[in-house]
Write a protein that binds this DNA or RNA. Structure first.
Lengths: 217, 217, 217, 217
DNA sequence: GATGAATGAGGTTTCATTCAT
DNA sequence: TATGAATGAAACCTCATTCAT
């Protein structure tokens, strides 16, 4: 069991390259952080609890992250790297002609809803931290929402809308999509079904991008 | 109409009916809370600091609120009572005909932007707390955004849109407006001027409500 | 097999199984608590003081006990485990015949006096807490006084007193012994020497158990 | 109604002779203290709560008592003044002959039980404070238990028991009576009915006082 | 690598107590 | 007399963080 011979050369004192065991511990800590993030308000997620949840001690936590924020940052980063391109691809995967645009619009709406459903707590946190002025989170947020936004801009340019304002339009669209997806539950509670919401979202997308009325109606 | 009325006692720590001097102190505490809220992340707003800022002691704070959240709640409540109706009136003040609709749409967009500029920190906090499941904040949020949303619904009904889904449409609109207004700065940073944004917002409103293309273009 | 085991977690704040160093600290804290308990009224024993007396910090205290009561409970528990059986054995160690009963009665009286002299403050506290309805302390008190009481019952049964009421008799005896032992000092102050008191105690014991008059007179 | 003309001459600033209204307030405060004492551990009875319970403010409390202890002292004092003589009279009201002694013993037992049932919380408190060294409470306790104790001594002397130790005997008796009465409930829980207990108590009294076996058996 | 243990630092709360009205 | 209000002072309790093993 104790054949920890691994890490070849330098067994330095400080943060040396990963190492099998270390990688696992780190992952356990990240997962634990996620679990807590989904159950508690951010401000209530404490190092001690993460450690307990991960089955280690606080001291161990500090060997991998300097504070909770850093761990969260890592999580958010992973997520953004996966989700940003995904959302962008949904936008880019269509020519947004009158004929295939509607289907694309629906796909985009669905994509946002699905992504927010899957990562609600981290996404919320990214928003929060960004609003509070944290630049590292802002970068992540930009990667995340910027991707689909730029895709929208690209489409708008390609379709060469007359005197359009592609950046504003894209910004408005992404804002709308993100916010509706984030508050879908609240909106349902208020009287709008998810089916209706995706329809409304798609309509706004379609109209904004193509300038014409969706064929659906 | 300066009716302080109510205060059903559900609230604070003490029971005795306020009293002049006490009302002043309470106000000072609320103002101090606001000041801090604008300067710091919510989680960093401490009772000690509120007290200092208000020129009293923590003990005094606890004579009026049982914790920071309660003070914040009071602030949010006041704000919602003022802002909700305002936003709703912007929506209701037009017949949304093709001729006057565009002006109304612009007014609504401007209204949201102005309100968010004036109350950014509280509004952010209401969103955060609501998302974290706090029901008292959710109620406030509903009063706040529900007002314009229902106004949109009323308009949609009056205009008798064919097979419309007024609730979903209104929800999407309000979500868009709130989110864009909240992140205007970020969007500008990214490439969309405020002027363009308000235009895009208005266009989405107008199209969604009237079903036709804005005359502006 | 990497079982973190269980550790029923019913107890303190932490779960991890003690550990040498920790055991020592815990002991120091308990001892410090005892010292203070002997010098001050219970309600005046503060965590800060215990920590100081033990040469640590309050934070450390909380790593072992969740409040003063829990520490006191541990002390009382230890004491009861040692003292209960001792008192019981004093009762059981005689056949309570007319000839050896008197000596036994004196030994029992002496035992109670000695035990109360040695643990006055804790015993007082157990009584207090029990009277106030604390069930955990009640259990301890039952272990402590129940032991000699049941021994008395056993003796009474063995001696087959006619229409006796062994439980009531045992209860009365133990009550008397505990109370006199607890207030010996006050009684002396009032006019009864310890020698006389032990004699009176013994007489009541002897008479109650054997039904006959002590030979001494 | 506002004819508060009363208090003739000096309307001094500080504690002037009672005054109708003041007496009432004082009484209300004492009663409130009692109520709390019966519901909470002594250490948890706070000035604020007494005031609330009495329907006044803390400031008012301080016009009558300098702290909670003083109020409690007043209550204890009243009680002792009423109860001490009562218990003494129960002892003195018999010649303790073989014929009427048993009835007297039963009456005394009943008396202690009744008194403790009626004043349990105050009596407990007196004991506690006395044990902790408070001399004012000790005096009260002496008045309370000293009364029946001295009555026992008087009886013993009158009956001229041979080489008796009247003080020790009386002390033991009163201790027994007080403790059993105080813990009657606990003893019942353990297996001794109240009827049996009063019998056992009476037997110990009778035997100790008269030196003979009670006729009852 | 991992972690028992310890603790400085800081915020939270509670109260007794005091005034000015 | 009575009491709104205010607050100093003292605990409480929790964490992030650091060592030594």
């Amino acid at each position: 069991m104790s054949d920890e011979v691994v890490s070849d050369a330098s067994d330095a004192v400080i943060d040396r390259p990963p190492g099998r065991r270390g990688q696992l511990t780190r992952r356990r800590l990240l997962d634990a952080t996620m679990v807590l993030l989904e159950a508690l308000p951010y401000r209530d997620v404490k190092v001690v609890d993460i450690a307990r949840e991960a089955g280690t001690s606080p001291a161990t936590f500090y060997q991998y992250f300097s504070d909770v924020e850093e761990a969260v940052l890592a999580i958010a980063d992973e997520m953004a790297s996966a989700v940003g391109p995904l959302l962008a691809s949904l936008v880019s995967s269509s020519e947004w002609t009158d004929s295939d645009g509607w289907a694309a619009a629906l796909r985009v709406a669905d994509g946002f809803i699905a992504v927010w459903d899957a990562h609600r707590s981290v996404l919320r946190l990214i928003d929060l931290a960004t609003d509070e002025g944290d630049t590292r989170f802002r970068e992540i947020r930009t990667r995340l929402l910027g991707a689909p936004a730029e895709a929208f801009v690209a489409v708008a340019r390609r379709r060469g809308v007359d005197g359009g304002t592609p950046f504003a339009d894209a910004g408005v669209l992404v804002s709308m999509l993100a916010h509706v997806a984030a508050h879908r539950e609240g909106l349902e509670h208020w009287g709008a079904t998810t089916a209706e919401l995706r329809h409304s979202m798609a309509r706004v997308i379609f109209t904004t991008i193509t300038g014409s009325t969706p064929p659906s109606l």
